[in-house]
Design a protein around this nucleic acid. Structure first.
Lengths: 186, 186
DNA sequence: GTCTATATGCGGATAGAC
DNA sequence: GTCTATCCGCATATAGAC
């Protein structure tokens, strides 16, 4: 499979699966958008679920890169901790912007998802948890893990709010997060 | 359609759709659990989506009733405002407990859901918003709407966290909410 | 009113040509 | 390696008997 075809397939998969829903998107729609045929897809991936998992994996790598860039742009520890909200904004308004969260969406669609998809969701959660904890450590020290758990709740809430209200602004979550950080500092 | 058959159909729909996913659950599975046949289902509802919408409607009424009961049990204004978390716990561990949130789940599955389903989701959100605002009014007065928006974020975050970690405890959300209330009071 | 049996369409996946 | 054409199964919905 040529690299460009593979990339187009993943692009199309990401765009359609994570905005319209996975089950609601037939592979034919992905193929049409990618300009590829079914045989080409199934040459690279054994099943539709494998394509979903591959799209999630690539998305996760790009999300972490976006987040890293936002962290590095901040001058102080608290800014770096709250940079996750800049990243949410940036990722959303960028070319990879989806309706809400690709990982939560994949988890929501099937109680028994394939092992690969389930692993991708778990990885996303653990990445958020561990990175938030590390970023919180210089800010609140021993409370880092507890604060990270609170921020994970707020991040997930921001993502879920996009389902309730497509115009939902990340500013609310950032404001709530700031209050939670301040509370632990005091 | 006999009332008991109708109730069994809604029970089965609720249990399966909102735990395993709507698209992932064929109507046959609902029929098998309800002990009814396809003809009986389609006598009462024109489409599968209509059954989903009916199950959401009934669930919404019962959720509000559960919430009301938790509010009434509280002795003070702050307790009544935070009673939404008691209700989340009670609803979850009761017989209607689902994997996460039936309304967010329905919204997640299709970008273009049927008008009835979309309306049910919107109703759920607006109910949360307006009731939280009303309950916040005696606690923080003019800040009620702003606080309600924050609490809606936290409630949605608690629900989304259930997807990330099935054992997620509501206590975290309640604690965060308490801090947000305290901040607005001061 | 509920059943059995079935029509109908669509989605995932494959075979075989080029 | 990619395409065209197609198979096969499953899911929604209906027809007609009891």
């Amino acid at each position: 499979m040529r690299a460009t075809t593979e990339a187009r397939l993943l692009d199309a998969a990401e765009e359609l699966f994570f905005s319209r829903g996975i089950a609601a998107t037939p592979v034919d729609a992905v193929l049409a958008r990618a300009g590829a045929s079914a045989a080409t897809l199934y040459r690279g991936y054994p099943t539709k679920e494998a394509l979903v998992a591959a799209a999630l994996d690539r998305r996760h790598r790009d999300w972490v890169a976006t987040w890293d860039a936002c962290v590095e742009r901040q001058p102080d520890d608290e800014g770096r901790l709250l940079a996750v909200f800049d990243a949410l904004d940036a990722f959303r308004s960028g070319p990879r912007g989806a309706r809400w969260c690709a990982f939560l969406g994949a988890a929501a669609e099937h109680a028994d998802e394939s092992a690969e998809v389930a692993a991708a969701v778990r990885t996303d959660t653990e990445t958020l948890r561990s990175r938030l904890t590390a970023l919180a450590e210089p800010v609140v020290g021993p409370d880092a893990a507890a604060l990270a758990e609170e921020l994970l709740l707020v991040v997930s809430g921001d993502l879920a709010m996009r389902l309730r209200d497509p115009g939902h602004r990340t500013a609310l979550a950032r404001e709530v997060a700031r209050a939670l950080v301040a509370r632990r500092r005091a």
